[in-house]
Nucleic acid binder design. Structure first.
Lengths: 166, 166
DNA sequence: ATTTTATGTCAGTCTTGTTGACTTTCCAAG
DNA sequence: CTTGGAAAGTCAACAAGACTGACATAAAAT
């Protein structure tokens, strides 16, 4: 890891001014990060909450409502409103569990998958451009810092999700 | 660092899977990023909007309402509600401009500056920990990618703000 | 004198979050 | 087999914080 080799620089990086710049960069970058999907969602009368639900259902097909709840970090009442519109609109399918029939397993329908692709492609295009502009080494650093910034529990969830993928 | 160093890898980094992981990292990291200030704000009956206003007023003392509006990317009605509570509560001072008396120049009061320090210190503590854990090289990469992810106009604002500081 | 700009304010809407109360379903332990 | 409790869904009420649109005021610019 880099911290081992370049010990002397660490102190310079940790001035309050450097940290404040990082905070601002995070704020502005997040705005860019959500800007493109937001435009698509607005067309369709959806919001960011719909995007997040669709994203994670696509990511973990068949996950339960409870699991989605804990990934998103919202209450079931809040999620339910969003989920209901997605189900009514035919983008998400809620299947009763086979072993435990109290559980509802969530899947995207073909139309839901289409929306997911559209949203994701917009977001990935920006990410791809940023990655290209910054270079592979910067990308590795970017991911490192982001992972270190997460809450402990969230990081565990993230790593599990990350490693479960291809 | 494990993945960096060799130029030929660039293509590998730009698989959809890598991009999706970056998207998720961004989502979860932003949650961590706002978690600590959110707790402090909740105690005081404020929200994220108050934090953002206080942050940028501290950053650019004497900036006008219009300038703050454009930095925050919200409408004046939305900002006004937040700003009014901060002024009434004695955290922000609104001074009539000297050259142009239509303008209101915004400053933090001593109490406002105290809150700013408290919020900022919480956020910087997390940032500092993340920076330490990831190392200086990762930090540089982090900032690179974030800057490349911003909208053009926003990036210009950010760079102006960044370079105006010590 | 008129227009434009900067700001503030009122009213109403929307999304997305919250709590609390209650029901239905159904697994599992007594 | 009965009952306790977990999972899920629903209804209601509420709040923050975003939006639009309309309008008011003061001051600068033309």
């Amino acid at each position: 890891m880099s911290e081992a080799g370049t010990g002397g620089e660490s102190l310079l990086f940790l001035t309050d001014e450097q940290l404040r710049k990082g905070i601002e960069a995070m704020f502005f970058a997040y705005r860019g990060f959500t800007a493109d999907p937001d435009r698509i969602l607005a067309e369709l009368g959806y919001g960011r909450a719909h995007h997040r639900a669709v994203h994670f259902i696509n990511r973990r097909p068949g996950l339960t409502v409870n699991a989605l709840l804990s990934v998103l970090g919202v209450t079931k009442q809040s999620l339910n409103r969003v989920l209901r519109t997605l189900i009514v609109d035919g983008l998400v399918e809620s299947r009763v569990g086979t072993q435990d029939r109290r559980e509802r397993h969530l899947h995207l329908t073909e139309r839901g998958a289409e929306l997911e692709r559209r949203l994701s492609e917009a977001q990935r295009a920006r990410m791809r451009a940023a990655y290209r502009a910054a270079g592979p080494q910067a990308v590795a650093g970017f991911r490192h810092v982001l992972e270190a910034m997460m809450d402990e529990e969230i990081r565990a969830q993230y790593l599990a999700l990350r490693d479960a993928q291809t």
